[in-house]
Amino acid sequence: MLQLAGKRLGAMVVIILALTAVMFGLQKISPLDPVHAMLGQSASAQAVAAERHVLGLDQPITAQYLHYLAGLLHGDLGTSYRTRNPLSSDLGTAFPATAELTLYGLIFALILAVLLAVATTLRWPGSWLFRLILFVGASMPPFLLAIGGILLFFVNLGWLPATGRTSIHNPPTGPTGLLTIDGLLAGQFNVVTDALSHLLLPALALAIGPAVSIGRVLRSSLVSELRSDYARTARAKGQRERQVLIRHVIRNAIGPALSMTGLQAGLMFGGVLVIEQVFSWPGMGQYMTQSIPVADFPAIAAVTLVLGIGYVLINTVVDLLQAAADPRIDV
């Protein structure tokens, strides 16, 4: 297991390194000149040259890349051409917002997926309705779902807020940056409930598509594992159907669903950028949409890198969980 973890972490480093190289390369072959983007088209040749020197753009390309990598190691993601702030401080506020939204999206997706799979496998009463709602939801693009949610729960019913992360003026700026957790740590439970009410709609809009994908995979492996020989053995021992499911079947059925979760988490990183627009969520999606039109390449590269690391991290965790679930998996 340790060896497997080591191998996976090694692979993770290689993938991230490749990602930085791709991002750096794209920046270099882009026809947009960042200096002109910063100084305006009418800047003098002298000012441009001076700025190029300040940014290190007059150095050989390998030196620029190594410099970039060395900066990354120190947490220096570069400087935004647009805001002129270090990207680590810009993303320092945007990243936790996105991370919290994605995290809750993933949690909701898993909860809904397990409910969908178990309810339809055990044929709970009403499971068809639950399934219908999820399938209809999943067949809509997330932004449409989000707009529908706002119209229903904010405009008509007034139950849930429609914009932002919180309506409290001085939320705790705790260690994690995740309002629900920082609120808990600071003992301000009103912050937690307020943050949750803000999270509910965007996280659900994000979760429904992945929930159906994961749920269907989980259901089909549950159904086949419930018919397996060892499940028959467990029944023959006189185990209750619930014990058969919980003790025997779930651990054997979880593998494919975990793989699907890894894939869906990757897709969610794309989806969250759109959802943030709809809910004016102050996250990396917002930041990205402001950076793209002005060709703020360092910003784009930094966001991509952060999302890429998140994706690789989640899939590494998925691999390790699969190995933990099935003792036969060995490197």
Partner: peptide
């Protein structure tokens, strides 16, 4: 088949 009749992950 004692391979499939025993739970492989328990």
């Amino acid at each position: 088949d004692p391979m499939t009749s025993l739970n492989p992950t328990m």
